[in-house]
Design a binder for these strands. Structure first.
Lengths: 111, 111
DNA sequence: ATTTAATATTCCCTTGAAGGAATATTCCCG
DNA sequence: CGGGAATATTCCTTCAAGGGAATATTAAAT
């Protein structure tokens, strides 16, 4: 994840809402535009952006197109976040170790 | 996290790079602008955006200002991601359960 | 083959975000 | 107090993203 495209995709409020909407499973363009109260062309445009950013995937079914969240995309974001927060975890671990050592020393030489 | 501000903050390549730069710990504006090879005013501007989005925090020290990543912000993103992916996990669990049941039935009535 | 539903695309316009350059602010030091 | 370093802010300009409206495309149905 050095892909700022994913972030720009999610930065737009309507697109973020689309993602929220797709939590429970894929929806058609019509359903999406209806529930978000936006016009169909805007829905299509936003979905295109999400698609190209890899946030979303389509599968056609006759006339309709179902858009659903793309797992890999979210997995990548999670990995990236972990790669950042794990540094902090390590620091916490070291702090705990340190405190533990201090505690041991206290036991050996009370008062 | 319904805050698209965080995403718009990270959507800009320079700002994303700033976050990457701050992984190891806080830096001053000067250091940041130097390492990213951007002019100081731009660095300040980007840092302002990151600050207002809550991605980053400052603490002043004499003349300088150290910017560092703000943990809460990343925690919130992680929580949001989990709230999305956990639905998938549940589904997987149910699938596994289902497969397990089928396996049991096989044992009871082989061939 | 024509019509109709669902979706995508295009064109135009407006607004906001980002960079450049200059300037303001803050703080330390002598 | 005056000077200089570090940082923030302002003004201006440019460019791309997003909405509206109209139109094109695709596929089904009759």
């Amino acid at each position: 994840m050095n892909n700022t495209n994913v972030f720009s995709a999610l930065a737009e409020p309507n697109r973020f809402q689309i993602v929220e909407l797709l939590r429970r499973g894929p929806l058609t363009v019509g359903e999406i535009s209806e529930r978000l109260a936006i016009r169909q062309p805007q829905a299509s445009k936003h979905l295109r952006v999400l698609l190209e950013a890899g946030v979303v995937e389509v599968h056609a079914e006759a006339n309709r197109r179902f858009y659903g969240l793309r797992r890999e995309s979210f997995q990548e974001m999670e990995d990236w976040l972990k790669s950042i927060t794990e540094v902090w975890e390590e620091r916490l671990d070291r702090l705990e170790q340190y405190l533990q050592v201090m505690k041991e020393n206290q036991k050996q030489r009370p008062e």
